[in-house]
């Protein structure tokens, strides 16, 4: 009861934070109990993940600029939201992402070449969802939230104790499907985590056009507890996702998490944010960068940052070079590959 109450406190106010933009560790009654086990080596792991996926993202953006990819949806600025949530998941939790969750996919073990197959135009999806428990990325805004909800119905029917997590943006919260998903998840008390990355923009539309209240403030109206966390604080995101997963897996039903973050790049490589976005806004958010704040915290803990940065950079370089060679060596499909190698119509007759 008291926890429920304290969760509600985190719904519409300032986002819950554990690591400030300056890299200070601050307390949160709601979040702290969920990250007691997180020491500096765990934090260093999260740091590595964030640096690596930023590097993947940058490399993919370059590949697009060089004509090797047709399009790429950058996640720049959203590393903490993706890594913090993905690293809270168990192996058998199932992810229903949008198109921007390449950081989540990386954490789930998606092969690097598989990450870019779709964006090079070679295939309609990059990987077998059942190998990594990540559904194929969804382009229809919000549709995947219903898939996560239905999958969760199956989990309950099967007596399984895992959960689903579905990722979507601030724009998606206006879609009927997202709202319907919350209705279904609440009515059937389903193990779903609704993970909204409020990156402040839906292409050129600011979040204020989607909602006049903080997005997390909507969920309680569905009977779904919500958490509004600093989405650039990897530790706060990890804690919030653990809270939500724990509730889901112990029969407590869905949770809505609003991770307040910022899309520092364009919507996709085809977008031009200078047409609609004030440059000062970007500067403000650069000061809240998810990676540099964690570096500052680790530094204040006496971590040898020179060594960590060298190790992490070496890993990022290796990953980027694998991504690049996987991409440019991907052969063009043969024209007839457009026809499925399996029968689209399998049924008798």
């Amino acid at each position: 009861m008291s926890e429920q109450h304290s969760l509600r406190d985190g719904v519409t106010g300032e986002p819950l934070t554990l690591i400030t933009a300056e890299g200070q560790r601050v307390d949160s009654d709601t979040l702290d109990p969920w990250v007691n086990d997180v020491g500096d080596s765990f934090l260093a792991g999260l740091y590595e993940d964030m640096v690596v996926i930023r590097r993947i993202d940058t490399e993919a953006t370059h590949l697009q600029r060089q004509g090797e990819l047709a399009l790429w949806p950058p996640l720049l600025g959203q590393e903490a939201a993706q890594i913090g949530s993905a690293r809270a998941l168990a192996q058998d939790d199932f992810v229903f992402p949008s198109y921007r969750e390449n950081g989540v996919a990386y954490c789930r073990g998606v092969n690097l070449t598989d990450l870019i197959r779709v964006w090079r135009g070679n295939a309609s999806s990059g990987w077998d969802p059942y190998q990594v428990n990540v559904a194929t990325p969804q382009v229809i805004i919000g549709a995947q939230t219903l898939h996560a909800t239905g999958y969760a119905m199956g989990l309950v029917n099967d007596g399984a104790s895992s959960a689903t997590i579905t990722y979507f943006g601030d724009g998606a919260t206006s879609q009927g499907d997202v709202n319907e998903a919350m209705v279904f998840a609440a009515s059937f008390c389903l193990p779903v985590v609704f993970f909204c990355q409020n990156n402040h923009w839906a292409i050129s539309e600011p979040v204020g056009l989607q909602s006049q209240v903080p997005l997390a403030g909507r969920a309680p109206g569905f009977g779904i507890p919500a958490l509004r966390v600093d989405g650039n604080d990897v530790l706060a995101v990890l804690a919030a996702t653990r809270i939500a997963l724990d509730r889901a897996c112990s029969g407590g039903g869905p949770t809505f998490i609003e991770a307040v973050t910022y899309r520092m790049g364009p919507h996709t490589t085809a977008d031009d944010p200078t047409r609609y976005r004030d440059a000062n806004e970007l500067e403000d958010w650069k000061a809240k960068d998810p990676i540099s704040r964690l570096a500052a915290l680790l530094n204040s803990h006496g971590m040898d940052m020179e060594k960590l940065d060298a190790d992490v950079a070496a890993k990022a370089d290796a990953v980027a070079s694998d991504l690049r060679s996987g991409c440019i060596n991907l052969p063009d499909p043969e024209p007839l590959d457009v026809l499925p190698t399996f029968s689209l119509r399998i049924a008798p007759g």
């Binding site: 239905g150 999958y151 199956g154 029917n157 099967d158 499907d177 319907e180 998903a181 009515s187």
Partner: peptide, 28 residues
């Protein structure tokens, strides 16, 4: 009631959750 499910009144919701159930190996 777990196999014959009265759903909320939302057709996209019904169809989209059926997709999720199918993902999970059900035949809705």
């Amino acid at each position: 009631a777990h196999r014959v499910i009265d759903t909320p009144l939302a057709e996209s919701g019904i169809m989209g959750t059926a997709v999720g159930l199918a993902y999970r190996g059900y035949r809705p």
